[in-house]
Design a protein around this nucleic acid. Structure first.
Length: 462
RNA sequence: GUCGCCAUCGUCUAUCCGGUUAGGACGACGGCCUCUCAAGCCGUUAAGACGGGUUCAAAUCCCGUUGGCGACGCCA
């Protein structure tokens, strides 16, 4: 496989959701793995539902995920000449014919067939009418009378469908616009697509498209029908499963690499490996080991994956990524060194950048605005607890320089001298500084707050 | 209804063409660690839908049943 050409062909009728994203990822990976090309095609022929806003958003999501494409995206609405030439060729070769039946008439045909327990189909009555453009409304493909359409799917394996299951499909509508199946075949051929990776809701379209390729005398590409992604209850994915548009994950502060790794792992595997960098995916993804069964999406695993990616990346990078989220949670732009310190303290305690930024709050807010957990306060701000806080006020005041090493030493000295254990001193201190019993190591917290803020917080509770 | 596809722990999956105590990961639960919450480490939980074949041997191959999904548009 040297000349691998794949494509991703979204309809701009909505945002890129994770199902589409996964299809795009597989398609992109196949091309990149084999050093081929990956194209984008915007299937915008549904004029009513297509919006530029969606196209922009989809392209934006692709870029964010790190899925680059070759050339410029192709828009189907700009290629009617291509589609018309293909239909005309089919007409000239008598592989297609003009149909004068009205939609109502066809509908009635289908209904009747269904009532007889047959597959609802157009009966092909215009085949031999010899209609010309004058009498014709739409153009239909003339199917072979019998035979089987077989193809070897990259994920589903061998698939066979009897031609009698299909009917003479419309190629060009009465309004002159091409239908989906015609446009797909014309485009995939014209773009030189060798591997069609798409959702498995398209498997039943594949025999129809193969019929068009055959009528045109064109080589049929390889197909790979990726299974659907289901919700946790194994129902079709919807909002209530927490599976959303890619931009929403971006807004929540997921790392694109984590999303890609997690999505790639859904329906594809490489032994027991769970986490993959983009480079590893490109290296390992060769179009095999694809699971034909539908897979349920697990938001919990995504969070875990993201935490791992946040944990394993350079602190400076994480700090830069979390910065906008810190501003989003209501704080001013923070110096890089502070963000790095915060990330070091909290990155293993958050599943995404937004909650990471939210975890910073107790340390960024002024002492007077620190939210205090009532239960923890009641439990730890006892008489002895307050005694410790008062004593520690003096300890910290005397601590100079106010740096990590000195703070640790001063704290330890206080614990020993007061005949207490760290376990007795720490909880009231932690509650005073964080507002609740949580967060990172005390020394780090104190060093980050600095002398002034530390003392201000103690003063609030003594 | 017809056609097609699918079926391993709750979830994602491994087990390459038949031979495994059916492995890993997420989750859940428990323990260790510990000033807290996490993280980390250790452990527990839990699976071949069902019924027939073929075979010395079946999760694996075949048939059927059931269930799920998809498609059946002058939507994409």
């Amino acid at each position: 496989m040297t000349d691998v050409v794949t494509r991703f062909a979204p309809s701009p009728t909505g945002y890129l959701h994770i199902g589409g994203a996964r299809t795009a990822i597989f398609s992109w990976l196949l091309a990149r793995h084999y050093g081929g090309r990956f194209y984008l095609r915007i299937e915008d022929t549904d004029l009513l539902r297509s919006k530029q806003e969606y196209t922009d958003s989809i392209l934006d999501s692709m870029r964010w995920l790190g899925l680059d494409w070759d050339n410029v995206p192709v828009y189907q609405t700009q290629r009617t000449d291509l589609y018309n030439s293909v239909v005309d060729r089919l007409l000239a070769d008598r592989h297609a014919y003009w149909c004068s039946c009205t939609p109502e008439k066809v509908e009635a045909m289908r209904k009747a067939a269904k009532q007889k327990g047959e597959k609802p189909r157009y009966n092909g009555q215009c085949r031999s009418r010899g209609n010309g453009p004058g009498q014709g409304r739409c153009v239909r493909l003339k199917l072979p009378l019998s035979g089987k359409i077989v193809f070897d799917d990259m994920v589903k394996g061998h698939i066979a469908v009897d031609v009698s299951e299909l009917d003479d499909m419309v190629l060009r509508r009465a309004d002159g616009m091409p239908t989906y199946n015609l446009a797909v075949v014309a485009d995939d051929y014209e773009m030189g697509v060798t591997h069609v990776i798409r959702g498995d809701d398209h498997v039943s379209n594949t025999p129809r498209q193969i019929l068009i390729y055959q009528a045109l005398g064109l080589p049929v590409p390889r197909f790979g029908h990726v299974s659907m992604i289901l919700g946790h209850d194994r129902q079709k994915l919807s909002k209530r499963h927490g599976a959303r548009a890619v931009i929403e994950y971006r807004r929540d502060g997921l790392l694109p690499a984590a999303l890609v790794s997690c999505l790639a792992r859904l329906g594809w595997s490489h032994g027991n490996q769970e986490l993959f960098s983009l480079e590893e995916l490109v290296r390992y993804f060769d179009g095999t080991n694809l699971n034909p069964a539908a897979a349920a999406f697990d938001p919990a695993k995504l969070e875990w994956t993201n935490t791992r990616f946040m944990r394993d990346m350079p602190l400076e990078n994480l700090a830069a990524l979390v910065s906008p989220f810190v501003r989003e949670t209501g704080f001013s732009e923070q110096p890089k060194a502070r963000l790095v310190a915060l990330c070091a303290m909290f990155r293993e305690r958050a599943g995404n950048l937004l909650t990471l930024a939210e975890n910073f709050r107790p340390l960024l807010v002024p002492a007077a605005e620190l939210a205090v957990n009532e239960k923890d306060a009641a439990k730890h701000f006892t008489e002895s607890g307050k005694t410790h806080l008062r004593a520690l006020t003096g300890v910290f005041q005397a601590c100079d320089p106010f740096a990590a090493g000195e703070i640790e030493e001063a704290l330890n000295t206080y614990v020993v001298n007061s005949g207490q254990t760290f376990k007795q001193v720490a909880p009231p201190l932690r509650t005073a500084l964080m507002g609740f019993m949580g967060g990172s190591h005390l020394n780090d917290i104190i060093a980050f707050l600095g002398k002034k803020e530390t003392l201000a917080r103690l003063a609030r509770f003594v």
